[in-house]
Amino acid sequence: MAHKKPGGAQWWIVAAFIGPAMLAILIVNVYPILYNFYMSLTNRNGPRRFPEGMYEVVGFDNYIRLLTQSEFYAVFGKTVLYAVICVFFFFVVGLSLALVLNHPAIKGKYFWRTLLILPWAVPTWITAMIWRFLFHGQFGPINQILRSLGLPAPNWLSDSFWAFVAITIVNIWMTFPFFMLILLGGLQAIPTDIYEAAEMDGASFWQGLFAITLPLLRPVALPAIILSLITTFQMFNTVWLMTRGGPRTLPGQPGATELLLIWAYNQGFAGQGQRFALVSAFAIVVFFFLLGLTLLYNRVTNVTKGAYE
């Protein structure tokens, strides 16, 4: 825990230390939220009402419209599903590799680890660019391999189901190294004599995993899981650059990979809709949802605090 002995600092010293950051937060965090809230109460929807002076405050119409629209729930549900599937695989892949890298019999750990964290280092927009080519239906190497093995080669990014699988694979590719590193750090902190004792009692690998490893990894794993649920829920960059939210099979319906923020962007900013007030209301609703997750995160980290100190 913090040592607050030098505390009780004079106000101007505190102001000098935190002032610049607070100013930045006011401009870039507080103002946009207030602005969004104000916009959410107006009728600034559609190109005609977009210019200044053409819209007026109408109250909570946008919220009612948003929360009674089935489109919103479909997109929300799909995004939750995406986040849960992704984080499950982050954890499973990250844990398996952390266990392998932590095994005493493995030689050249540093080399393997370096190779494995490469995907994390690639800028996200380059990731999108690379995988769009890898998934290319005709010329992409994934389909070339599938065809040469005599397997069916789906038209990945143009097919609703396979496009969703594709954006899941890409996210696993770019995020598993983070989980691997965090969990490896957690594994290294577990004293090995616990396992030796368990082994003498004849415990199997799986018994050891569920009775010792997972419970002891909890303080490290849980915050990482909640944090990445929050960031996956807000996925935009990579998926937007790969699919723009498509493919769209039915006109007027959200696309197969149109996750929450992509949907909001397409509705509000991407030209066709400019349903700006509606998207502002959406932003406030999502804000409260993510706030709930954040509070959960905070409680979890507070509960687990101290476990490794």
Partner: peptide, 27 residues
């Protein structure tokens, strides 16, 4: 390190602010 009035509230407030999806601040 410093103890000052409003410290806890500011920490809580910042955590809450962070939950707002930055992309939607675009405009």
């Amino acid at each position: 390190r410093f103890k000052f009035r409003g410290r806890t509230q500011m920490l809580g407030g910042m955590l809450a602010l962070q939950a707002f999806p930055g992309l939607l601040s675009l405009f």
